[in-house]
Structures are given as C-alpha cells and as structure tokens.
C-alpha cells in the first residue's frame, strides 16, 4: 500500500465518521427518525459484528474448517455466555483467551 492511500483512508474515515456523529446531534437535532429507520440502524450493530466475527472464527485459513476451529468456536461461545451475564469487556475476553489456549493445549496432548 502506498503511504498516500493510508492517509486517504484515515482522512475519509475521520471526516465520514465525524459527519455521522454530528448528523443528529448538530445539524438535525430537532428532527426524529421514523421508528423503522431507528430500529434498522440498531440492527446494523449485531449484523455487522457477527458478519465480521464468524468468518474470522471459522475461516481462519481461508476455508471453513470446523475441526481446527473448534477451540476458537468454544472460546467464542464462552465469551458470549460471559458477556451476556456481566458488564464490562475485559473478563469475557480473558475467559475466551483462556478457554482457547486450554483447548488447544488439550488437543495437542
């Protein structure tokens, strides 16, 4: 990647993200969205995060490989379980990492 491309992405992301943040707070703070628009914007988060996370868990080497991905899948489920029950992000992450390393160690034995 050329250095200008990196700077272009940073600049476009900075301007675009600020515009998103400013959109309702600044320019349109008296307007309200239709409920369905607001709901669809809220649904973006789980859809997008899941679309990012699941391929990273299951397609680490390019193809879907459930056997080799098993420790990561179990670790992600442990993180999900923990994060749904507790506030905060650190403990679920730590638990997920411990579960993955423990399972990988057990499978190597």
């Amino acid at each position: 990647m050329e250095p200008w491309q990196g700077w272009f992405v940073v600049a476009a992301m900075a301007v675009g993200t600020f515009a998103i943040r400013w959109s309702l707070l600044g320019a349109m703070h008296q307007r309200t969205f239709d409920p369905w628009v607001e709901r669809s914007l809220m649904l973006v988060l789980p859809a997008m995060f899941s679309a990012i996370a699941i391929p990273m868990l299951l397609r680490a080497s390019g193809d879907v490989d459930l056997i080799h991905s098993a420790p990561k899948i179990v670790a992600a489920l442990a993180t999900l379980w923990c994060a749904m029950r507790r506030r905060g992000y650190l403990l679920p992450l730590v638990i997920g990492m411990i579960v993955m390393h423990a399972l990988q160690w057990l499978l190597r034995m």
Partner: peptide
C-alpha cells in the same frame, strides 16, 4: 484472536 472475541463481547449485551 481478541478481535473476534471483542466483537462477540460488544455484541452480546
């Protein structure tokens, strides 16, 4: 691996 885990933990609540 903390990246997918971070997404999972952000999404869970």
């Amino acid at each position: 691996f903390t990246v997918p885990l971070a997404f999972v933990s952000l999404m869970a609540p």
